[in-house]
Amino acid sequence: MKKKKWKLIRQIWDLIRGSTFIKLGVSIIIIFGIMAVFSPIWVNRNPEIYDPIIGVDPDVHGSEGPSLKHPLGTDYIGKDLFSQLLRGSQIAFILGIMVSVLSTTIGTIVGLVAGYYGRIVDIILMRLADIILTLPRLPLLIVISGIFGTQSNWIILLILSFTFWPTISRVIRSQTLSLRERPFIESAKVSGVGNRRIILRHLAPNVLPITFYYLTVTVTGAILVEAGLSFLGFGDPSNMSWGMMLKWCFTTGYVFKAPYWMIPPGLCISALAFSFYLIGVGLEEIVNPRLKKR
């Protein structure tokens, strides 16, 4: 059995090595990963000055440009922008990856169940997906965070996951529908293999490449939506994200005065979203043999 696992890992490694898109995407992500890990180290040197939420440099008044002490400068009350940017990459990572894991997991399970069982189960699950799919995401988030009063990253995470899964489940379902008719599934049924085992051992591995693809694409979506929400002022006020940095820059009137404040978070949002997108494209090339042939 060991031999098999190694083989799978090596296959995946070979595929990744062969794709320029994936290599590029992973490199960018690694840079952001280093930033996220570096965040506490930077802050802990002197939390009173460098903490992205409560730290203020008493020597600085108003926004100042980059200096040795503050590599990216400070905001309007003297908070360190570099530590905000680092914290932002943590948030983006955690939020993006958690939303995508949660929503692709739900989406894959729902898609498999709906596609495999068909009939009434399929109808109920897919109508539900359709309803969610047609709900406008941003207003929904605004309304729900209004209901809960305080905005917390957890609520944002749950709502994003809730609105992202239907797209995935639709794709997985259609894939399952065609897999279901394949003789190896019939062969498993004849052998008395139970439904749960058929889904887990036969169907799931065969839709996994698509799931992986959506995993990366959803990260992109989640990062962008979170940034948009924060910018509109519906982010988690007890934390700092890239979108929130942009928002403060905008509301305090520094947009045209402090490019050192506005450009880095904007660039980071685009770069991280782009890197996951690149991995998605690379994976799609692998998943879709027709694209691979070129």
Partner: peptide, 9 residues
């Protein structure tokens, strides 16, 4: 089954 290419996962 008919097609051994299809009947094995």
């Amino acid at each position: 089954f008919q097609d051994p290419y299809e009947s094995l996962n």
